[in-house]
Computed example of a mutant assay.
Amino acid sequence: MDAVEIKGPAAAFGPRHEDINEDANRFGDRYSIRFVGKDKVCTNLKYKDKHSSVSKDVSKEWCDGCPERDGCAYFEPFNQIKNKTRSLTAPHNYLEIFPDILDQWGDIEVVLIDETPWYNIFEKTARIGAHDISHTRSALRKLDDEDKADSDVIKRALSLLDTLSAGLSDKDGGERQADRAYELATSIDFDELTTELTKIHDGRVLEGTDYTDAIVAIADNLTEIKQTARWASDQGIIGEFDSPPEQLWGVDNSTKDNAKFELRWRNVDLMEIARQKPVFVLATEMPTESVEAMFDLPVVTVEDTVTPEAEIIQLNSRMAGITRLRKRNQTFDNLVEFTRSLFGSRLLVR
């Protein structure tokens, strides 16, 4: 993300990086908050490297009762917000938590989202690998042995796992298995299973086993995937909706010997950000219609397309200030008009 001069408080979101600190340092003291992943900073040996593998509620419970919380680097940004730090820099994948934080941070004037491709609408992703299926099979058998769930539902869930597994080993990409998996998933009542499987999953993670429960991942996100596919169809991004396209539901065989079944869905939480503060989306590949759907608001689009008729001025002397621009008439008038148009608008810059 390149530096942008902001006169007032701002929240700036850049591309996803393993560590945002290096990029954020370019902004100087104004952008002083850094968000660091829990697994990266957690010093509690009981929970270290396990936060990302359990549900958010369980992770929150661990943090709420942790004796090392007061000195934990993960909570430092939240403390800075409470102490009226005026600007924040974070990667894209923190966008979903900011409706709440921005509501608490009353001084902020603008949100910048940089380098956002259209598919960030489908921001959330769950990945199911072969080892995830193996662990979930084991958990289902445990529930069956202990009579914790309906045996017929368990059998149907196991059939779903068999279909996912076949898709992972399919050299042709697993499209047929993906369609079959969708049919099975939409015909199963997961409520009873997910409650018990979540308990088993979180317990095993705490013991040191790292995996994503396949049934829980599907059950928790199936509705969002269907809604996203329906929206993408309505927007003309995909064809007529029958089952979710491979971008939202299907096998990723791009990594040899490490195929995963991927679930992707639209991050509805993003819509709330633009209701809290004015939003600038910079250098995006998304069409205006997609951004309007993303935020469910009208969008002002500004393109930087240079044509032969464009007036290009490079000011490279100490005398080339606003007075020089004013003498050029049209450029100055355009800048004034552009500035006036920003107030009260949600802006997309391409």
Rank of each mutant, 00 (worst) to 15 (best):
residue 277 K to Y: 09
residue 239 G to F: 02
residue 240 E to R: 15
residue 233 S to M: 03
residue 269 D to P: 08
residue 249 W to A: 00
residue 249 W to E: 01
residue 233 S to K: 01
residue 253 N to G: 11
residue 251 V to D: 04
residue 244 P to Q: 07
residue 257 D to F: 15
residue 237 I to F: 01
residue 268 V to Y: 08
residue 269 D to H: 14
residue 245 P to R: 04
residue 273 I to P: 03
residue 245 P to V: 02
residue 266 R to C: 06
residue 262 E to H: 12
residue 254 S to Q: 11
residue 241 F to I: 07
residue 253 N to H: 15
residue 259 A to G: 02
residue 260 K to A: 10
residue 247 Q to D: 12
residue 267 N to M: 06
residue 234 D to P: 00
residue 271 M to Q: 14
residue 242 D to E: 06
residue 265 W to M: 05
residue 277 K to C: 11
residue 268 V to S: 10
residue 264 R to S: 03
residue 273 I to L: 11
residue 240 E to A: 08
residue 257 D to E: 15
residue 248 L to Y: 03
residue 248 L to F: 10
residue 239 G to V: 06
residue 245 P to E: 00
residue 261 F to M: 01
residue 242 D to T: 14
residue 268 V to E: 15
residue 241 F to Q: 10
residue 257 D to K: 14
residue 232 A to R: 00
residue 241 F to R: 07
residue 257 D to G: 09
residue 277 K to H: 13
residue 252 D to T: 07
residue 253 N to V: 14
residue 270 L to H: 09
residue 243 S to Y: 14
residue 251 V to M: 03
residue 249 W to N: 01
residue 259 A to W: 03
residue 238 I to Q: 03
residue 260 K to E: 10
residue 247 Q to I: 12
residue 254 S to N: 09
residue 267 N to G: 04
residue 269 D to N: 12
residue 269 D to Y: 10
residue 255 T to M: 11
residue 268 V to R: 12
residue 260 K to V: 15
residue 275 R to C: 02
residue 266 R to V: 08
residue 269 D to K: 13
residue 242 D to M: 06
residue 232 A to M: 13
residue 267 N to V: 01
residue 248 L to P: 03
residue 261 F to A: 00
residue 265 W to Y: 15
residue 234 D to G: 01
residue 259 A to S: 09
residue 270 L to R: 01
residue 237 I to W: 04
residue 240 E to M: 11
residue 265 W to K: 05
residue 234 D to I: 07
residue 234 D to E: 09
residue 265 W to Q: 05
residue 262 E to L: 15
residue 248 L to G: 09
residue 239 G to K: 08
residue 246 E to Q: 12
residue 250 G to Q: 03
residue 236 G to D: 07
residue 242 D to V: 12
residue 244 P to I: 14
residue 246 E to V: 14
residue 266 R to S: 11
residue 265 W to L: 06
residue 256 K to T: 13
residue 275 R to G: 13
residue 240 E to K: 14
residue 264 R to N: 07
residue 275 R to T: 09
residue 241 F to N: 09
residue 274 A to P: 08
residue 256 K to Q: 13
residue 257 D to L: 15
residue 265 W to A: 02
residue 250 G to T: 01
residue 236 G to C: 11
residue 255 T to C: 07
residue 263 L to D: 00
residue 257 D to Q: 15
residue 255 T to F: 10
residue 242 D to P: 00
residue 261 F to C: 02
residue 244 P to W: 13
residue 249 W to S: 00
residue 265 W to G: 04
residue 272 E to F: 08
residue 254 S to D: 06
residue 273 I to K: 03
residue 260 K to W: 04
residue 269 D to Q: 11
residue 275 R to N: 13
residue 247 Q to V: 12
residue 247 Q to H: 11
residue 264 R to F: 10
residue 250 G to F: 09
residue 235 Q to C: 01
residue 244 P to A: 00
residue 259 A to D: 01
residue 260 K to N: 05
residue 257 D to I: 10
residue 233 S to A: 14
residue 248 L to Q: 08
residue 265 W to R: 08
residue 274 A to H: 07
residue 248 L to V: 03
residue 240 E to V: 06
residue 273 I to M: 06
residue 251 V to K: 00
residue 248 L to R: 00
residue 234 D to H: 01
residue 238 I to P: 02
residue 247 Q to S: 14
residue 267 N to H: 08
residue 242 D to R: 12
residue 235 Q to I: 05
residue 263 L to C: 04
residue 261 F to H: 06
residue 270 L to S: 05
residue 256 K to E: 11
residue 244 P to V: 06
residue 232 A to Q: 00
